[in-house]
Design a protein around this nucleic acid. Structure first.
Lengths: 172, 172
DNA sequence: CCGAGGTTGTTAAATGTTGTACAATATGAT
DNA sequence: ATCATATTGTACAACATTTAACAACCTCGG
């Protein structure tokens, strides 16, 4: 998914008499566009720096989630939810990663419909090999460009928004 | 795009003796994940609220860029750059939008290789119809959840990062 | 126990995206 | 002017994602 803006060209021509549209102020718009630009370019750059490891961002995300999961495995549906993918897409994705030897499908004891996606030893090793480079990327292109105060302030500002969006997602 | 994290599970097991990996501190990690989560869920939600208008985020972004462009048109390559898409992908995308009546391909006077993507009247009208709803979405899920001070502070923090990433992108 | 209705994960087909190669055209040094 | 080099947009093929349909399985009220 991607992007959005809030119309400079359009907002100038008001069909008057209708419910007023709350256009963004100059500052709001600057901020909004900066946020958008950083999100997108950062995704782009981090994905780029993952390529030498033969991993797409999607693959890496799966590895992260699984490696932090109990027993390094997770139910397909939960994994799909956690990574914001459709079940179908995840199914394909896991098939690919299975072929690459990073992950394994595992029957689910309690529920014979269910499957676990389980990180293989090779998947775990890949993780350990890739993660340090990735952290360095995140630092270099993002984290290290803020002061500790900025980080605290931005976290305080963002956390409630994340919560709001998570809640929305939940009951969608 | 997507993802990334900086490994809690992995960072605990150090193969000692190698160049130390600069893992994120707890605060840094919280912030990083909040940023990621907000970016992704916001994209998701805004895309969702664009669906009733029969537009994908990609389509909307093209409309925005074109509607703010002189003469409401732009060279294919410039549009591809502006929207962070490959030329190939943009070509397909414009074909689709052309079929939908939103956009038109137009010969380029000075350069017989070139083409403009030109917003049609219908494209412009679509823009005017959709933009107000989109702004409301952006406000409701993002902008209105910050104080003016937070907005100023975050813009000040993000702008240099955007510039850094833009520069990287430029010489890639 | 039965069956209606929900959930799980996969699949096929349609659609979208990426990477590479290409023809047409421009540009610039000589 | 001429040629080597670069740029523009498209086309094809390989790949990824979405959509809708599905079989297999759980759950729970009766």
């Amino acid at each position: 998914m991607d992007m959005h803006s809030t119309e400079t060209a359009v907002s100038s021509s008001h069909p008057r008499g209708e419910e007023e549209t709350p256009w963004l102020s100059a500052r709001e718009q600057q901020f909004w566009r900066a946020h958008l630009e950083v999100s997108r370019l950062l995704d782009y750059q981090l994905g780029r720096e993952l390529q030498p490891h033969n991993l797409a961002s999607n693959d890496y995300e799966i590895l992260v989630v699984l490696s932090e999961s109990p027993d390094r495995r997770m139910r397909m549906t939960d994994l799909a939810t956690a990574t914001l993918q459709s079940k179908s897409r995840l199914s394909h994705q896991i098939t690919r990663m299975e072929n690459a030897g990073l992950v394994l499908r595992q029957d689910c004891p309690g529920d014979r419909r269910g499957l676990y996606a389980h990180l293989t030893e090779q998947g775990w090793e890949t993780m350990q090999k890739v993660a340090p480079d990735h952290v360095r990327s995140v630092r270099h292109h993002f984290i290290d460009r803020f002061t500790p105060e900025q980080i605290d302030a931005m976290y305080a500002a963002l956390a409630p928004v994340a919560e709001h969006l998570r809640a929305l997602r939940g009951r969608a």
